[in-house]
Design a protein around this nucleic acid. Structure first.
Length: 456
RNA sequence: GGCGACGUGGCGGAGCGGUUACGCAGCGGAUUGCAAAUCCGUGUAGGCCGGUUCGACUCCGGCCGUCGCCUCCA
């Protein structure tokens, strides 16, 4: 059996992965807040943890892995967006449903295009509010939380291990204090479990009046409801380590003192665009929809995996181009080839070493060079990679142009022949001449139908 | 200010205390009327300064630089 070693953020080191129950390996990953198109930063964790999901299924069996990725559909950013886009005759709550429904659908489509398997469960926060209220009540009963002015706050001082995941002491946090200090907080570090809702905001009846849950409690509840009080892996972006994951740990451990919550924490690195942090003000904000306009989802997936998941990924055109070339080459090699029964052990070994996808690709390049098409096909299947569908080119037109070129060549009119070849080349049509036979051709990764059409 | 990560050849990007990463680009060759595609070959590295060691890109310390988090951003 392949040994899987994973970097545990909480321990700051690699550990051998040993499931609590090999018959049911359990993983939770923080999913998107559905108020807008998924961006490239949402895509990376989805793709990275999809690779881990596939690896775990390969090692422990397809029916022995439970993967939960939530959808946060209660959030003040959603409320703000609803207010901005309110349609005539629409209530604010209807607007919220419109936005969360639409963006959730977009998210599912985008992730599918990136080759991600659907997780076992994709719970929505709105489906778990009663359980959140119950967990908050438990925290109050345990003396870890307090109600004040319609809010319920978690009292950080009551959880001495707070900060263990991110390696911060509460003193450090206060030193950097940029925390909002509300008058009803006992301590600036205390964070919201429940807050009151205005009449035009979504709200649920609770022991503390009509209100809504805070962000952190959503994940704690959905994880324990679907995976239990102790489960194997919790994943998410590195920026979520503090405070989101720290707060999840505090809540869950205090609500279920006998449970451990996640045994292993994994964090993917951030994505930069052309060397800079992606932001709307810099104008380099990239959505998955934008990316899908640049290249097929399969290519984007390879590009997202081309650097190790813990490092910062710089998103550039060159990276996309190289991914497209590699995939086109591999796709040509494995077309019509039956994958070998199991992925090459070298590829499994690379992935098993803390998801070293670049090392796995090096192995795949080696297989391509050595002509091991079945092995390559198996490796691609394991990683959820496939060649993008060949673009449709106007075959009659290309054949006609090639015939004209052949005629020019026969008459030694090389200027005319070369003009046609250069045109086809510029259009991204790859022409392969063979001695004594008709030229073969196929659309390449840079095929541009408009340029081909212009040669008519 | 506090905490943390990272600095590898032209670019991307891994592993490794001593022996080729790999890919792209480049260069040379095969092939071609010239190309393309394909194949073969090949050069180029480890921020700076110290330390440990027979030996360091790899371990330790310092410095410099880049980036991130500390703001309900993946």
């Amino acid at each position: 059996m392949t040994t899987i070693r994973l970097w545990n953020s909480a321990a700051r080191g690699k550990v051998d992965f040993t499931p609590i129950d090999p018959a049911n390996v359990r993983m939770y990953v923080c999913g998107p807040t559905v108020y807008d198109r998924a961006h490239i930063g949402n895509a990376r964790p989805a793709v990275v943890f999809d690779v881990l999901y596939r690896l775990l299924r390969h090692v422990y069996g397809e029916d022995h892995v439970t993967y939960v990725r939530n959808v946060t559909d209660i959030d003040d950013k959603i409320n703000a967006r609803a207010k901005e886009t309110l349609q005539p005759g629409e209530t604010p709550v209807e607007a919220i449903r419109r936005i969360t429904g639409e963006t959730t659908r977009w998210y599912f489509e985008d992730m599918k295009a990136l080759g991600c398997l659907p997780p076992t469960h994709q719970p929505r926060a709105t489906e778990y509010v009663p359980q959140m209220i119950a967990m908050i009540e438990t925290l109050i009963a345990n003396g870890k939380a307090y109600a004040a002015e319609g809010h319920v706050l978690f009292e950080v001082a009551k959880y001495p291990e707070y900060g263990a995941l991110s390696g911060r002491s509460t003193d450090d946090m206060i030193a950097g204090a940029r925390v909002e200090v509300a008058p009803f907080k006992r301590d600036p570090m205390d964070f919201v479990l429940w807050k009151p809702s205005e009449p035009d905001q979504p709200g649920w009846e609770s022991p503390w009046g009509r209100g809504r849950p805070g962000w952190h409690i959503e994940c704690s509840v959905m994880a324990s409801e679907l995976l239990g009080e102790t489960f194997d892996i919790h994943g998410g972006g590195a920026d979520l380590m503090f405070p989101h994951h720290e707060n999840e740990i505090a809540q869950s451990r205090c609500a279920c003192p006998e449970g451990q919550f996640a045994k292993l924490w994994m964090h993917n690195g951030m994505v930069n665009v052309d060397g800079r942090k992606m932001s709307k003000s810099l104008g380099n904000f990239l959505t998955v929809a934008d990316m899908r306009g640049q290249a097929p989802g399969e290519v984007l997936r390879l590009a997202l995996l081309s650097t190790h998941y813990r490092g910062v990924l710089d998103w550039t055109q060159q990276r996309i181009d190289e991914a497209a070339d590699a995939l086109a080459k591999w796709g040509g090699l494995v077309e019509g080839v039956d994958p070998s029964p199991s992925a090459a052990s070298s590829v499994l070994e690379a992935l098993g070493d803390d998801l070293n996808t670049p090392a796995a690709f090096a192995e795949m390049h080696r297989m391509a060079r050595e002509g091991d098409a079945p092995g390559l096909a198996a490796a691609m299947a394991l990683m959820g990679l496939k060649a993008p569908a060949a673009p449709e080119a106007d075959g009659d037109l290309v054949e006609r142009l090639l015939a004209a070129r052949a005629e020019a060549r026969a008459e030694k009119d090389f200027a005319a022949a070369d003009a046609i070849r250069k045109g086809l080349d510029a259009a991204g049509i790859i022409v392969i001449d063979r001695k004594g036979e008709a030229s073969e051709w196929r659309p390449g990764p840079n095929f541009d139908p408009a340029k081909l059409e212009a040669m008519r």
